[in-house]
Design a protein around this nucleic acid. Sequence first.
DNA 1: GACTTTGTTGAGCGGTTGCTCAATTGAGCA
DNA 2: TGCTCAATTGAGCAACCGCTCAACAAAGTC
Lengths: 194, 194
Amino acid sequence: MPRLKGADRRTLILEAAERTILRKGLAAATTRDVTSDLGVAAGLLAHYFSWSALRAAAFSHVIGADIERSVTGRMGEAPETVLSDLVDGAFSVEADALWRLWLEATELGSSDPALADAASRGTDRWQAGLSSLLARGRAAGTWACPSPDESSWRIIAILLGLAGLCLIPGSPLSRDAATHHLRIAVRHECGTSA
Amino acid sequence: MPRLKGADRRTLILEAAERTILRKGLAAATTRDVTSDLGVAAGLLAHYFSWSALRAAAFSHVIGADIERSVTGRMGEAPETVLSDLVDGAFSVEADALWRLWLEATELGSSDPALADAASRGTDRWQAGLSSLLARGRAAGTWACPSPDESSWRIIAILLGLAGLCLIPGSPLSRDAATHHLRIAVRHECGTSA
DNA sequence: GACTTTGTTGAGCGGTTGCTCAATTGAGCA
DNA sequence: TGCTCAATTGAGCAACCGCTCAACAAAGTC
């Protein structure tokens, strides 16, 4: 309810949208969820954003922050440490919401161009980060990995695939099993270690 | 509009539902889509099915038929032929609708127990079929493959993951690239060939 | 042919959604 | 203090959804 300058209100709404999609998912989240999170009238959101644009921006921001936290922002650390942490935390409970966003963005992207664009750009950033991580490890002699650019695509694919299998209620694949499979796939791509 | 015995009407509705979800996807399909496909009043559907149950049954039937067509029903053929066809056709245009169903079932499963159950059972059938295919190939000496049961999970995961990447409009990954990555992943799992 | 049974109709209910817009509020300024 | 105008409100619109239900129509039975 406090009165704010336009730009500040925009960022507050964006942050509320990020919380909302993390809690309810991209498909189930509504404009009213966001405004009630802020304690603000329903009409205010449409004054600053279209729902389609806001939702895509929130998705982009959330996954961008996660890529930064887990890969891009750790360029100074040993590649094997970064990759190992990535594998260990991939299917933790806290990661569920993020995987859900990825899967939903893929699906909703077919009817929401803004979301499709955000998913496409996010994937590119992710792949680029992972690829340079693998290249660093190869350069350091930590592991073989003839083609970091290709390996990163396969690792992303198996991450997304295993995550989807884990997200099915009454899941046919446990988190531990998924982590195990991911570790082996990564070993296939990196030659040794991980 | 012709008058039918209950059981016949049920199968007609189920078939129409299958066509509908293949055309529009699980999330976008509506009960009215199905009844108008049959040229029948909207109220008739609810007389035979709940939408949740019908949608899950249609999904289960569609993917069951595909697993039968591509794996389970080809138990008499050479394992390498079956696997090779699987890889070649995985990301064809015709397969798009099926992959979309898998991804949507995963997502909608979190709010639709019937769909979650169908996805879970479908995954199990798929994994069992693929696992026995790999086991047959190993027994025939076609390829190494120390653990068909584990390899089948990883192949399914990378199939789902690559399919999701291909489905994003303005896709960051082309069909050919996806097929290439799948082929290499399968080679990793099977040792030689494929 | 009268009567029951059952498949079928379609208007409409109750609920949800993103978004509109006239009215209201309050901060900034003369 | 009074004026201005952007920020905010919230009832409500239009569209969509699955599903209900009283009414109708066609077999089946005697």
